[in-house]
Design a protein around this nucleic acid. Sequence first.
DNA 1: CTTGGCACTCGTTACCGCGGAGTGCCAACT
DNA 2: AGTTGGCACTCCGCGGTAACGAGTGCCAAG
Lengths: 340, 340
Amino acid sequence: MPMGERKLDVLRAIVEDYVSTQEPVGSKSLVSRHSLGVSAATIRNDMAALEDEGYIHQPHTSAGRVPTNKGYRLFVDRLSKIKPLTGAERRAVHRFLDEAVDLNDVVNRTVRLLAQLTRQVAVVQYPSLSRSSVRHLELVPLSETRLMLVMITDTGRVEQRVIDMPEAVPDTDVLELRQTLNDKLVGVRLTETPMVIQTLVEEASVEVRAAMATLSTVLLETLVERGEERIALAGTANLTRSSLDFSGSLRPILEALEEEVVLLKLLGEVDSGSVLHICIGEENQIDGLDGTSVVSTGYGPAGAIVGGLGVVGPTRMDYPGTISAVRTVARYVSEILAKN
Amino acid sequence: MPMGERKLDVLRAIVEDYVSTQEPVGSKSLVSRHSLGVSAATIRNDMAALEDEGYIHQPHTSAGRVPTNKGYRLFVDRLSKIKPLTGAERRAVHRFLDEAVDLNDVVNRTVRLLAQLTRQVAVVQYPSLSRSSVRHLELVPLSETRLMLVMITDTGRVEQRVIDMPEAVPDTDVLELRQTLNDKLVGVRLTETPMVIQTLVEEASVEVRAAMATLSTVLLETLVERGEERIALAGTANLTRSSLDFSGSLRPILEALEEEVVLLKLLGEVDSGSVLHICIGEENQIDGLDGTSVVSTGYGPAGAIVGGLGVVGPTRMDYPGTISAVRTVARYVSEILAKN
DNA sequence: CTTGGCACTCGTTACCGCGGAGTGCCAACT
DNA sequence: AGTTGGCACTCCGCGGTAACGAGTGCCAAG
């Protein structure tokens, strides 16, 4: 059956009221807070229908209604009205991010900004190595038999690794190795480096072959395979606002936030285009994270997604506001990265 | 008046019981759980005295006693018996930290380990730049007018900064700049670099003088002045264990943990020798952090302190166990750093 | 299809009374 | 002087009961 227009209005009103008051909403308060043009009794009929269809739910008889996850889903998909940031907020975003001098700086500022704007927990993934390419490789001798390998990517990430060499490497060899590595690898996407790396040893001159073998192994292991995703987090203190948001304990949430793997899974599906992704309640298949929603999106210069960013909060969150904030910040971060 | 031996025993017993049960402890349960050799009435007299002297406190008439911060202080200073880690724990520390390949790796592993051992929030400060010296400086051209400056310290830290040059810098100049920077700065302690940096411009050849001026400014600003302390955190989920530990809300704690400045202040006074530092309740002068104690110590290769690490938890914590864990981990981390 | 009315449900709050843990004090004992 | 058992007292926490009120479902009328 086609859903009546008013019923949708009612659902929207319920979600909005519930989000702002944090309390089950009843028919009377609905009619008094919104001008729906009909009486409470009529609303009650609609509410009964909405409940049958699974969009709202009654904690107990004689309590108001609370949106179900299905209800939130319908709300974000079809009902929510865009709530753009205020001018002041936009200006703050620009001003704050413009001051960044550095990839680290950009990421840190972004995550703090996002936490502040949404008053929730913000998560920003550093540009993924797998979507970057090599810009430069540097070999720094630390001692006779120790080298530090530094890799800089086109996305601005700097990764390093200390390497114990099997035998002393004279400075001239270091220069040669460094030169070869850069000649062969600069510009190559990290996903494609393994093929190139395999050829390095064969093509190396006799003197440096052994050293190159060690380097290749480390390169493969550390920089490529281990994938080294990095993540920045901010705003965990916001979890304590309305502490009862998180039924019972926020323990599982804090645990999840410390687990990089889980976080990445949450940001997850930001690959496809610059689409904004919303995951409501147990849609994220993670234990203990029913009760939390994630609003995330990809970012990256010129349409190319290099990483994800987003916000974690209670299912009962202000979706329109959060969506705007995430979208705006992602867009602006992308611009900044494009400039570099 | 000299404190009677038994009264101290009573205080110790109260602290131990309270820490393990989380409940005010009364005279009866004391005599039944410890063999003090006297009757409950005698204990009551001692308890009354201890209360007069401010070591313990009664939440309300007819409740048991709870140690005051002054009581905890006396306990850690004079009463607590060392509780060494189990063999399995020691082995775990060694095994886990030995696998680290990298400064980052060491720090991350350390902080996670500490959180797990103590079941509390662990904090590890990266080796402070101000106590490091320059091991190597690298200039990487990113584009005509952009350079990336990478600094590697003897403590293993790698800091980078992107620099917009006022005009294009040809590759030969980059090499010269790089060479000069390294000649002049390698081996210099970071606290002393400002003096050296000032001479760089004057001594630079005409061609690179402008560029060197820019570099000098950035070096001073970013790497030296801003001090760039970094910190790693783990175990925040442990805050939720015994959630009532933190009178009311853990909001202020989460907030403090996100504030680098506050954290550094907490780790604070780890300078002097390798002494272990314990800060109980409002002894740390931070709002909202009465109720939390900090156990911290410095670490660094061969007695030289380069940074601090520690644990944040409720005043009502297992001090002996925590102390052992912090001490052991710090000692072993220092060893590992010394090897590098 | 909407509306006002009405009986009903059920969670929340306040209140009362009671048991129990724990204390302080005192008089007696060593 | 220090220790002990006894005893009266305090006060928290718990279970039960009653009043309240928000909210509902249903029905008959518009």
